[in-house]
């Protein structure tokens, strides 16, 4: 658990360091607590709808009053300089922040009309509906088959071995990995290449049939070819799933998403259609970031 904490702290300092060395940067600008997000935060048919989300790590105020809808069967990309809070926000959506000591979340995050931070909500069931794929591929040190079967097994999704086999095959097919691994399902998942591992992790996540899949920089540890493969996959998955992806690559956001949200120092600065954000940003900070002036 402390591991996450340190990486978080690391991310913060990494984000602040350039602002110290280049004081003319707009990074220093404080948007103020009454800042209003530019653009339309609501959509017609949201999978998740958040209002006034605040996140604190101990004393640190990491997310400031973020309201945002995640549209059903859409890909929404979250971009912004490192330390801007985009990953933290993403982790709120399936309460992965629960595992971090000293982390406090306020505000409303509605999934199907219910606040997921409500006391009556079961984290386990929530995460079965909102799956997650992480920055670094993290297959379990088990066989490829067992990696995929793990989720369905713990949730009791398969009544017998045949059903389980079907789920594994279906998930691998959807993740576009089936043809590559169908002959070596018993081989360890850690033996695959980086890109394959990440697709394995995606297959693992969708094996439990979630409604939403959260992806935290899923391609940042991969080479360009593997990245392209993942991006293709994300586009295909949109048919069946709602996807929220955090990325540090603007090109990637432009390629895979329909909507884009720009985060800056814990604020959601601007949100809108991806084409609009990249061609005609309305806020100065968004524009500076898009045009590569910082970040």
């Amino acid at each position: 658990m402390s591991l996450i904490e340190t990486t978080m702290v690391g991310e913060e300092t990494a984000g602040e360091a350039p602002s110290v060395s280049r004081p003319e940067q707009p990074m220093q600008e404080d948007l103020g607590s009454d800042f209003q997000t530019v653009g339309e935060v609501r959509v017609d048919n949201p999978a998740i709808s958040t209002t006034g989300v605040q996140v604190y790590y101990g004393e640190k105020h990491a997310i400031r009053n973020v309201s945002l809808d995640i549209g059903k069967n859409q890909v929404i990309a979250m971009i912004g300089p490192s330390g801007c809070g985009k990953s933290t926000y993403l982790r709120c959506l399936n309460r992965m922040n629960d595992t971090i000591e000293g982390c406090r979340v306020e505000g409303e995050i509605l999934l199907d009309g219910e606040n997921i931070y409500d006391k009556s909500i079961d984290v386990v069931a929530l995460r079965a509906r909102v799956g997650m794929v992480f920055q670094k591929p993290n297959p379990f040190p088990k066989s490829i088959y067992d990696n995929i079967a793990y989720g369905p097994k713990i949730h009791g999704l398969a009544a017998n071995r045949t059903e389980l086999d079907e789920i594994v095959e279906r998930s691998l097919r959807r993740a576009g990995l089936w043809e590559e691994v169908k002959d070596r399902l018993d081989a360890p998942g850690t033996g695959l290449s980086g890109g394959q591992q990440q697709r394995l992790c995606i297959a693992r996540a969708i094996a439990v049939e979630p409604e939403v899949v959260l992806m935290d920089e899923p391609a940042s540890a991969l080479d360009p070819i593997a990245t392209a493969r993942i991006e293709e996959l994300i586009d295909e998955l949109r048919e069946n799933y709602t996807i929220a992806i955090v990325t540090h690559s603007m090109q990637q956001a432009a390629r895979v998403s329909q909507r884009t949200a720009y985060f800056h120092m814990g604020h959601l600065v601007e949100v809108g259609e991806t084409t609009q954000i990249f061609t005609n940003p309305r806020h100065k900070l968004t524009e500076d970031y898009i045009t590569g002036r910082f970040g």
Binding site: L111, D112, G113, A125, L157, E209
Partner: peptide
């Protein structure tokens, strides 16, 4: 959470397994 028509059959299985798992 069980309200709404979007709940998938797999999610019902998850709900059913919860008591035993806890």
């Amino acid at each position: 959470m069980s309200s709404g028509n979007s709940v998938s059959p797999s999610f019902e299985k998850v709900q059913a397994s919860l008591a035993r798992r806890y």
